[in-house]
Nucleic acid binder design. Structure first.
Length: 513
RNA sequence: CGGGGAGUAGCGCAGCCCGGUAGCGCAUCUGCUUUGGGAGCAGAGGGUCGCAGGUUCGAAUCCUGUCUCCCCGACCA
C-alpha cells in the first residue's frame, strides 16, 4: 500500500478506458465538440501533434518527398474507379449534395432543393484517387519517376464507434503518395516509409513498435501489400500506429497513371501510400501515461521545462520572478536533441503547489519550482515527471544550484526520453508470449480472467482464401486479430497453430484498438 | 448500426419513482488568517436541468421525438 495521493481519480488498473478519457481531459488535450465523433484539440494536445508533425515532416523531406495539398472534396465520379478501394470505404463516407441553404419557413435552414449538386462530392476518406488523377497528368515519361508526394490533411470516415484520438470521424494525418517505374522501386519506397515510421515512433515518440506485413485480410482496400508498425498499449492491446502500402499497379490502372519506359513502351506505374495520424497521440497516452496523467517524451513536449515561482502576492515576488527570469534565460540558452530547449515560466497567480499538479497531469517532462529559500541559497527545486514519487509518498524533488540545473537539463531530458522508451520496451517484451503452440494454449492465454494478457507470437502456415477466413473466425471468437508478420523474426521451425501444417512464418496475435 | 447506460454550474454528482419555481462537493471570486509543498475560515458569483414538441394551473421530474457521450458487439487508421 502506498500513501501516494495521485493526480488522477482513476487508476489504470481499475478501469483503463475511463483512465484514458480522464487523461485526455485532465491533461487538457482535447474535448468533445457536439458533432458526432469529432473533437476539439486544445493547445496542449495540438502542441504535441505539431511536434509530431515537425519531426516526421523533417524525416519525410529528408527522403526527398515533397509536400502538396489536394482538395478536401473529391468528385464522386473520380472516386469510383478502384473497385476494392471503393468497396472498402463506401460504408463510411460523408457526401456533399447541396451548395446553398434556404429558410424553411419555421425559423430554420434547409438545403435548397434548387441548389442540388449535379454530381455529389465526397469528403476525402483518403486521397489515393484524387492524387492518382493528378499523377496521371503529371507522369508521362520514365524521367518523371519516381514521383514522391506527401500531404498533411484532415480526412473523414463515418465511424460507427469513436474514441478521442484513437478513432474519430475526422482526423489529422499525413498521407504519402508515390509513383515508381518498377515494382522493386515501389516496394523499396514502401519499406523505406515503414522504416521511417519505426524510427519516428521509437526515437521521437519513445514508442517501441513491431514492424511487419499485415495478413491478406487486414490489407488496405486496393493494396497488394500492407505493412504496419504495431505498438503495445498498457492494457496489452495492440495499436496500429502507422501503415505503408504497396499498391502495385491497381491504382495506376484505375487512374491511368502510365509512362513511356526507356524502350518507348507504355507501362503502368507502381504506386505506394503511407500514413500516420493523430491516433499516434492516443498511442502516446496509452503507452506513457501513468496514474498521475500524461508523460510526454521530451522530444515531443511543447514545453520541456516549466518553471513555477512560489508567489506569495507580496513584495518578495518581484525578486523571485527576476530570479526565475534569469533561470528561464539560462535554460533557453541550452539545447537538447539539436533544438533550443523549450521552457515556460508560469507566472500566473496561484499557489505553485497547485499549479504543479496541472503540469504533472499534462506531463511536462521537468518541473522547476522556485521559492524564496531557493533564491537565497541560489538553488532550485527540480522534479522529473518520469520519477515523480520519492520516499513517503512525496514528490521527489532535487535541489541543485540554479546554474547546475540549467546545465544538467539537456542530459536530464535525454535521460527521460530514454527512460520512457526503455520502460515501454521492457513492458512490451515482458508481455509477448512466444511459447504457444496449440489453439488450447492460445485460448488459455487470452482467457477472460487474464485481463491484460498482452500479445502472442505464434507460427502459422500463412493460409489464404477460405482457409484464412476460417482462422480469422477462430481468432475472432477470442476477440483476437493477426497484427502482422514481424520483420526480422526467426524463421518458422514448427507446425501451424491453426492447421498443423508446416509453419512458414511467425505472426503477432493480439487484441487491438 | 444493434444491445445497455448516461446527459442538472467549469468538473464530479444528488434531486426524478411520488410534478410545486434547483442543491451538494471540488473549482472560481472577495476578505482575513496561513506560508517549502495539492492551505484554513467566512462570504459571494455562476445553471432557460442536452434540444424540440406534448400533458398539466404548474415539468429537471410524466409522455413522444431528436442530438451527444460512455460500455459491449459488428466495422474500421
Amino acid at each position: 500500500m502506498s500513501a501516494i495521493r495521485h493526480a488522477l481519480a482513476t487508476r489504470r488498473a481499475d478501469d483503463f478506458a475511463a483512465w484514458y478519457q480522464e487523461v485526455v481531459s485532465a491533461a487538457d488535450m482535447a474535448e468533445e465538440s457536439g458533432v458526432r465523433g469529432c473533437m476539439v484539440i486544445k493547445p496542449w494536445g495540438y502542441g504535441i501533434w505539431e511536434r509530431m508533425q515537425r519531426l516526421l515532416d523533417a524525416r519525410i523531406k529528408a527522403a526527398g518527398v515533397q509536400n502538396v495539398y489536394f482538395p478536401l472534396f473529391i468528385p464522386l465520379g473520380n472516386f469510383v474507379r478502384e473497385a476494392a478501394h471503393v468497396e472498402g470505404f463506401a460504408k463510411e463516407m460523408a457526401v456533399v449534395t447541396h451548395h446553398r441553404l434556404i429558410a424553411d419557413g419555421k425559423g430554420g435552414l434547409i438545403p435548397d432543393p434548387a441548389a442540388k449538386l449535379e454530381e455529389p462530392l465526397i469528403v476525402r476518406p483518403t486521397s489515393e484517387t484524387i492524387i492518382g488523377d493528378a499523377m496521371s497528368r503529371w507522369v508521362q515519361s520514365w524521367r518523371d519517376l519516381p514521383l514522391l508526394l506527401n500531404q498533411w490533411a484532415n480526412v473523414v470516415r463515418w465511424e460507427m464507434r469513436t474514441r478521442m484520438f484513437l478513432r474519430t470521424s475526422e482526423f489529422l494525418w499525413q498521407e504519402g503518395h508515390t509513383a515508381h517505374d518498377s515494382r522493386d522501386d515501389a516496394r523499396a519506397e514502401t519499406m523505406r516509409a515503414l522504416e521511417m515510421y519505426r524510427a519516428f515512433a521509437e526515437e521521437d515518440v519513445a514508442l517501441p513498435v513491431i514492424a511487419g506485413e499485415k495478413p491478406e485480410n487486414e490489407r488496405f482496400p486496393g493494396a497488394v501489400e500492407t505493412w504496419s508498425i504495431e505498438a503495445m498499449m498498457q492494457d496489452g492491446k495492440a495499436l496500429q500506429a502507422g501503415t505503408s502500402h504497396y499498391l502495385g499497379t491497381n491504382f495506376a490502372r484505375a487512374a491511368n497513371i502510365r509512362f513511356q519506359d526507356r524502350e518507348g513502351v507504355q507501362q503502368f506505374a507502381h504506386t505506394t501510400s503511407w500514413g500516420v495520424s493523430t491516433r499516434m497521440v492516443g498511442g502516446l497516452i496509452m503507452t506513457h501515461g501513468d496514474d498521475d496523467g500524461l508523460r510526454v517524451p521530451p522530444r515531443l513536449a511543447p514545453q520541456q521545462v516549466v518553471i513555477l515561482p512560489m508567489l506569495r502576492g507580496d513584495d518578495g515576488d518581484g525578486a523571485l520572478v527576476d530570479y526565475c527570469e534569469a533561470l528561464r534565460a539560462m535554460v533557453a540558452a541550452q539545447s537538447a536533441f539539436g533544438e533550443p530547449l523549450r521552457v515556460l515560466l508560469d507566472k500566473r497567480p496561484g499557489k505553485a503547489a497547485a499549479k504543479r499538479w496541472d503540469w504533472v497531469r499534462r506531463g511536462a517532462p521537468v518541473l522547476i519550482e522556485v521559492g524564496p529559500r531557493d533564491r537565497e541559497a541560489g538553488t532550485v527545486s527540480l522534479l522529473r515527471r518520469d520519477a515523480l514519487w520519492g520516499e513517503g509518498g512525496k514528490p521527489a524533488f532535487q535541489t541543485p544550484t540554479r546554474e547546475a540545473a540549467a546545465q544538467a537539463l539537456p542530459g536530464i531530458l535525454a535521460e527521460i526520453q530514454g527512460a520512457l522508451f526503455d520502460q515501454a520496451h521492457a513492458r512490451r517484451d515482458a508481455n509477448i508470449e512466444r511459447g504457444i503452440t496449440t489453439a488450447d494454449a492460445l485460448a488459455d492465454y487470452f482467457a477472460p480472467g487474464n485481463r491484460y494478457p498482452g500479445w502472442a507470437q505464434v507460427q502459422w502456415a500463412r493460409p489464404t482464401g477460405p482457409a484464412l477466413d476460417a482462422v480469422v473466425e477462430r481468432l475472432k471468437a477470442l476477440k483476437l486479430t493477426v497484427r502482422n508478420v514481424p520483420q526480422g523474426a526467426e524463421p518458422a521451425d514448427g507446425a501451424c497453430l491453426f492447421t498443423g501444417e508446416r509453419a512458414v512464418e511467425r505472426i503477432i496475435v493480439a487484441r487491438s484498438y
